[in-house]
Every structure is written in C-alpha cells, then in structure tokens.
Design a protein around this nucleic acid. Structure first.
Lengths: 350, 350
DNA sequence: TCGTTTTGATATATCGTTATATCATCTGTC
DNA sequence: GACAGATGATATAACGATATATCAAAACGA
C-alpha cells in the first residue's frame, strides 16, 4: 500500500525482464507491439513512477533546473519565474525555485543542495556579498549557470540583466528636460551591484547636464519603508523637485509619503519608478516608470541557460535588456515657486 | 576541471578506502583522528560535494521537501513560503517551490517529478479541478503530504487552512452591526473551495440576520480586475452599501473603483478585505480586513508535515486557523439616505 | 537448404553512495 | 604469553535505474 513500485515490480507483473520493461518505459530499443502494451498496462496499473535518482545517476542526464532567487515575494521576480518556467517546461525541464532571502549563507546551502542533487543547470541572482567560494564551487563542478540581474565583476558566467545605468540616465534626463534640477535618487540597500549601476547612470547625467549635487537615499524594497524614506528625504532636502527611484515599490511608497504630506505627485514633486509592476499602472496617480518586461526577461534568461547546457564550450555571453520610459501621471514640470532664493524655477526667471 | 569529484577521488587522495572516506564525511563509525583530518582535508581541497541521488537512494533518507503552490506571485503566498522554509530549514530540510499556476495538468507534472526524485514530503495547494488521479497517486506511493488552504472533500490528507466561513461571517456580522443591510460579496473565481466556504459564511449571516438577498460577484485575484468588477457591481446593484471581499487585492481594487467614481470607501460604501497583506495597512485609505498571519500559517503547515514524516501512522489532522477582524478606515456606518428610490448621488444634489 | 541478417528479448556491468560484515592490529588481563 | 575484547580500517553487497553486449528465434536471400 505504501511501498513504491520499481521497475522490477512492473517487469514481473508483465512477465518480462527488467531490461525490456525499461526499454518500453523509455521508448527505446526494439520491442514488439504486444509486449509493449503488456508493460505499459502493468505500469499504469501499478502507478509506476520511475526513480529519477537512479535514472539520472546512471544516464548522466537530468532535466531539473534550479532557480535561486533573492526574494520570491517581489512581484517582479514572480513574473520572471513564470517566464523562466514556461520556456523551460516547454523544453521538458522542470524548474524549482529556492528563496535565498538575499542571505549568502542560505544561498550557499541552496547551491550546495543543488549540486548534491546533480541538477542540469542553475539560474541565480547572486546575493549581496556572495563569497568567492560560491563562484568557485560552481566553476569547479562545471555547472551550467547563469547569473541574473546582479552582474559580478569577474565575469565567468553567462549573465542576463537590465541596462541599469542607461535606464536611470534616461529617467534623469527626462526629468531634466521637464525642467527639474534638484533630482534625488531613492531606494535600494547596501552595495547591490544593481543599485550601484543605477546610481551611476543617475549621477552621470546629473553631472553631465550640470544639475544639482546628487542626493542619494537608501530604502529597503517595500512600500512602507519607501514611504518613510521619502518623508526623511524631503525633510532633509526640502528643495528637491523630483525623485528617481530604485524600484516601483519604493516609488509607490514615495508617492504615498507625498500624498500624506499634502503634496501631489507629478505636480509638486515628480517621481519615476523602475520595473513597471502591475500596481504601477493602476496606482493613484498612475506611476511613471522605467519598464522592463519581467516575463520576457525570464524567457531570455531561460534561453541563455538552455544554450549553455547544449553548447558547454560556447563563450560566455552577457545580454542586457533595455528598459523603456513609460510616462504616466507622477511626473511633470516643476512648480513655479512664488519667489525667494529657492530653486530657480526653470522657464520662470525674474 | 569540470568533472565532479566522487568519494573514490577523495579516498584515493587521502590514501584510504572508500568506506573510510564515507564514514568520515558522515561522521559515523570508528575513525582515528589522524585519518579523519586527512580525509577532511582532501575533501575540502577537491571541493567534494556528495551526490545526494546515490546517498538518498541507498540510505532511503532524503531531506528535500516540495511545495507546489497555485500562484507564487501572490504576496500572501510568498510570506507563507518564508514561514515554511524557515521552520523546515531549521530542521535540516530544504524546500523547493514549484508554481502550478492553478493548472491541474502542470500540477500533475510537478507532483510526478516530486515523486520521481524521491523527496521526503509534499506541501501543496490543490489546483481547482485537481483530478482524483493526483490524490490517488500520492496515496499509492505513501507520500507524506499536507494540503494547504484548499481542503478536499474526502479528507485523506493532513490539512492546514483558514476558518473561512467563520471569518466572512464575522465580517458580515460586523458590517450588519454598523447598520448595513445590502451587503455584497466580491471576488474569487469558479468553484474554488476557499471561495465556496467564504461565501457560505457570508450567506449564512445574511439570512440569519434577515438582511438583503445575497449579491455575489466574481473577479480574478488582482487589483485591476477587482476594480472593474466593483464598477460593474455598483452599477448593477446601486443600493449596495457594503462589500465583503474574497481577498485584499480585490478589495484594494474595489476601493480604487470607488475613488474613481467619486465615492469614498468607508463613508459612501464600506469595504472589508481578507488576508491583511502588507499593502492593506498602507493603502489610502487603510483597508479594514480579516487578518491571518501568512508567516505563522506557513510555520504551522511545515510543522504538520514534520509530524507526518516522523509519525506516519498518526491519524489525519485538520487544523484551521482563525482570521481576525482588523478595523481600519474603509468601513463605517452607512450614510443616512435622503430618501427616494434611486441611489442618492453622494454629495451632489440636483 | 544453408548461411546471413533482422527482430525481439535478456544478462550483465555500472552510476556514486551507504550498511553490514569482515579482518587485521593493538590493548589489557591474569 | 595466550586470549578476550576493543579499535581502526576495509571488502562487499545493495539501492533502482540505464547502456551495452549477448543470444535465441524468426525472416530472408541465393
């Protein structure tokens, strides 16, 4: 009742040898139609499910893929997972997701478990402060692996990500064209590579166009934290007229902060998000943001891994997808100030 | 460079037998300190990682748990996953998550893959219209499995869920006490067991307290759909003064619909959500909802599975957690109507 | 009719571990 | 110094599948 049937059980029930049963199940070799039917029937009756541990060990083939991600709850990531799974499942693979909570130690355990189970390939978003050891482990075992979003300095692995610097540069330039000069950057934590790149794009434009001194503010990646960070930011920098955010969640939090302070996003202070999550379009007011399609990103990621698995000797590839500015209601020209020493309202001089 | 080291490699490097190496790695048997050191050193140098396929096959022990969930993107589910992982990882297990997208066929593939790999236990939210076959497969293989959220009629598996009927009954009663009579139910799709139970609680109170005829409206579980459904609902039932929702996401969409229609949630129409997701507290206005702690729910779920794994003969358990009413700003007494049959235009007379 | 090929089924070795049995060597006791 | 028991290492047989080699019987051509 609770014992798992094995190939031998099926073979005996069908009155054939184990080898024959195996060939029928896998559809290889030369088997007569009659015995094929017999074996398949027995297998079905016994609810036989092959043991992939034995099979993959012997054959050296495994169709399981692991996806170690830093934060499963993020809706953007969830869409990525959907894209990854859809493409890989069509190719016969199966994707299991492990949440590392951006903890290098937990990530290490997950990757080790991945190797332990001899999976076919790994997708991962390297946790902040991933030890060199983790990379070397993957390298030493010759695991087909693709890093996602967070690019590592010494690029030994395939990578799929977003053109971060380019995107925030575009966002900042767009705000500058609207007339903003005091533009701040809000969101992200610690020294995540993604944030570093995004800030680089922001500061480059700030200095290229000779705008104000960059103002950079941290915040964990959730709405509540974003709201609080924004409150701090406008208190510390009251002359700020626009904010480029590290992500939509933080941007939505920032808008919330404005509304609670009696300000109107897009009129009093402009806010640009990043990602274009579902809530962005439906928020009040709808959020201007740098859009990337997480689903497409996921498919791309999966495709690169497939290529790597199928052509192990292929040179390392890096593909970065561009984000596109989607203008909604949280951006607009800065308000003309009623005078004083305050930031020179563009267009409105004395 | 790319070949995986095996126990034999380690043993040879350390100048001992495979058996000895195995014992050192697992810390069993009688081994002298000297050879122990030798073997551990060699293992570290070679970056040896045991092959769990071989090990678990031989030993019959596996520390891998699968969690097949209907929708990974749902923030509520993400918190559940965190609770599950935290508890199980503390016990030495490893949880991998598979997203079935509420598709019975995909779910079937995932569960079969689970069995194929001889994992230790399964947690799952049965997809709507899960075929009987899937249950029987699990049963036949004697897999320790716990269903989550969606309880099945013929209860053969342990279950962890929410007291759904009780919760919506409480929500409805609360609205009735505020003075509402025309209370509608909004959200959920098809014949999901969860929704069925929740609607049962709602209709029971509606008839017990002799309120208006129940009005029940479908909606997919996202903000945009919730908004549109709410617009339809109030158009079709203009005298509705309060809405009990199937989930917070839909409830937030409903609030959005009200605001866009020039109505104020909590004053013109009351809205109660379900789940208490993070956004609920921080929305404008903050959402009244039936709160359950997804993290705690996850821990409970994990604990039940552990018990099942450790005591296979234990009778089947069903544990349902109560939801608690959290009153925020989207509920209030119904407006006193100025009379007349038509829906009084709030604020604006002729 | 005989030898050759094709067909259909099977025996056997192997994947990388672990569990059990086995076997020397060392220790201590009287 | 002979013998029991402890100690430390090893040999060997599984686990459940697959790949390769093998083999008998059937089909074929000349």
């Amino acid at each position: 009742m609770s014992d798992r049937p094995k190939l031998e059980t099926v073979a005996r029930a069908a009155g054939v040898s184990i080898s024959t049963a195996s060939q029928v199940i896998r559809g290889t070799g030369r088997i007569s139609e009659k015995t094929r039917k017999k074996v398949l029937l027995a297998a079905k009756r016994l609810r036989y499910v092959p043991d992939n541990r034995a099979a993959s060990m012997r054959s050296g083939q495994n169709l399981e893929i692991g996806f170690v991600i830093h934060h499963i709850a993020n809706p953007f990531n969830a869409e990525v997972i959907a894209g990854v799974s859809d493409l890989l499942e069509d190719e016969g693979y199966l994707v299991s997701v492990l949440d590392a909570h951006d903890d290098p130690e937990r990530q290490g355990r997950h990757i080790e478990a991945f190797i332990r189970n001899g999976r076919a390939g790994l997708l991962w978003v390297p946790a902040v402060d991933t030890p060199q050891d983790t990379f070397e482990l993957l390298k030493a075992h010759g695991i087909p692996a693709v890093t996602f979003l967070r690019r590592t300095d010494k690029q030994e692995f395939d990578h799929v990500g977003i053109r971060n610097a380019e995107a925030t540069a575009a966002a900042t330039r767009y705000l500058a064209e609207l007339g903003h000069r005091r533009i701040a950057y809000l969101g992200g934590t610690a020294m995540a590579a993604v944030r570093r790149d995004r800030i680089a794009g922001y500061t480059r434009v700030m200095s290229d166009l000779e705008l104000a001194e960059p103002v950079i503010w941290n915040s964990p990646d959730n709405k509540l934290a974003g709201m609080n960070a924004m409150l701090d930011l406008i208190q510390a920098n009251p002359r700020t007229t626009a904010v480029v955010c590290n992500g939509d969640t933080v941007a939505l939090g920032a808008c919330l902060a404005l509304i609670r302070s009696g300000l109107q996003p897009g009129r009093d202070i402009s806010v640009v998000g990043f990602d274009d999550i579902q809530d962005a379009a439906v928020a009040t007011p709808p959020l201007t943001t740098m859009a990337v399609s997480p689903y497409q990103l996921g498919r791309q990621l999966a495709q690169v891994l497939l290529d790597r698995i199928r052509h192990p000797e292929m040179p390392v590839t890096v593909s970065e997808i561009a984000a596109q500015l989607v203008v909604r209601d949280t951006t607009g020209a800065p308000r003309v100030h009623s005078g004083g020493a305050a930031p020179p309202a563009p267009g409105g001089g004395p």
